[in-house]
Amino acid sequence: MRLYTILLLFVILGCSRNNQDNFSLVLEIKKVNSENNTSTVNFILTNKSNNSIVSEEWDMYWSQMSGSFDNKSLPNGIRYESINGDYKKLSFKNFKLEKNSSIEFEFTMNGILERIIFGPIGVFIRDDSNNITYDVNTKINWKEAEGIEKLDLPNSITRYEQNKSTKHLHGNMVGHIVPTPKTIEKLDGKFEIRDTLVLKLPEENLVEYEEEIFMYFEKVENFLDIKNVLYTSGGEPPNIEVINLSDRSDDIQRDGYILNIYEGIIQIKVIDKSGLSHALTSLLQLFMNAKNEGSN
């Protein structure tokens, strides 16, 4: 009984999949005009199935096509419509698509398909009168289009030249997105990034900020091979100091921070844990940039 069920399912799926190849749409780009951003296109919709579409009205749908059909150039009874942004519809009235037949016409497209992937996606025919939907395979012929040589289309060589300077960053090195600072002031001098950095926390916030600090320590050591330690009285002077301002500070709002990088020390001013998290993420990104650029 189990073998019979599997075989039956295979037959049903096999028939359904074959039906997808019975309707095809070919868009043949005849001419492109880069000056007015239009294309002359030959439309060929073919039915190779055993079914005929003889309803008075039926529609074809697709999505994500770069360019639109100029309704003035379409035959009488065919109308193009954009639905919900990227969803497109072509309505046919008094057009039959019987088996082993085609509908062919030439139209003007507003836009130029600069890449194959900009063509129609997920094309299907809907015959509401008979409650039937047909999948449609698509193909775009463009190599013989008049005027294509005038287009500055990207190729493998130009893409390489445009992207050869791009540096690869491992996914783990991409930190949280931090809002752009309101102001950035460049100071003279430079901060030297050492193998070990000492960070000083205000004693009253040690427990509150501990989690964020040790997460930062782990990232800096894993990604940049820089060791961080907490400042202790009588030990090495701090390289990074966190200063907690009062909630009434006019300089910082909640979730905000001030990051001052001086020649000998980095000061982080915050009023809450969230602001400290943003500040440490910004500092980590600055350290990453300095390492990639070979600077301090």
Rank of each mutant, 00 (worst) to 15 (best):
D272Q: 09
Y160C: 06
N100Y: 08
L74S: 06
I6L: 15
Y80I: 04
E293N: 14
N76Q: 13
K269D: 05
I271W: 00
L283V: 10
Y209S: 05
K99T: 11
E212W: 01
I140K: 06
V136P: 00
N51L: 09
F223K: 13
S101W: 06
K150L: 10
P154E: 11
W62P: 01
E146S: 10
S101M: 07
N244H: 14
F118P: 00
H278A: 04
S52L: 09
E98T: 12
R115K: 15
K167Y: 01
R79D: 00
E204F: 12
E104S: 14
I240L: 07
D59S: 11
N131V: 08
R159E: 12
P181A: 06
V136E: 01
N50E: 14
M65P: 02
N51K: 13
K167P: 01
S282Y: 06
G111R: 02
N130D: 10
N130F: 05
T158H: 10
F69M: 11
C15N: 07
M173R: 11
I261R: 11
L13K: 03
E208C: 01
E185R: 10
E146M: 08
K30I: 12
Y80Q: 07
N155S: 09
S274C: 04
V178Q: 02
G111C: 05
K227S: 14
E144N: 15
E241S: 13
N239G: 04
L25M: 06
L97D: 01
A290K: 15
S34P: 03
S101C: 04
Y4A: 14
E211H: 10
V136L: 04
L90K: 05
T196W: 05
P181M: 02
L280V: 05
I265D: 01
K150P: 02
G77P: 03
G171T: 05
Y87E: 10
P120Y: 02
L27N: 08
L197C: 05
E114N: 15
S73T: 13
G77R: 04
R254N: 10
E203W: 04
S282D: 12
L276T: 04
V178K: 01
Q20M: 09
G189L: 07
L27R: 08
S49V: 02
I193G: 04
R79W: 02
T166D: 09
E212Y: 02
L27V: 05
Q285T: 10
D188E: 14
I29N: 03
I265E: 12
V54S: 15
G264I: 07
F223L: 15
I132D: 08
I12F: 09
Q162A: 15
N260Q: 13
E185Q: 10
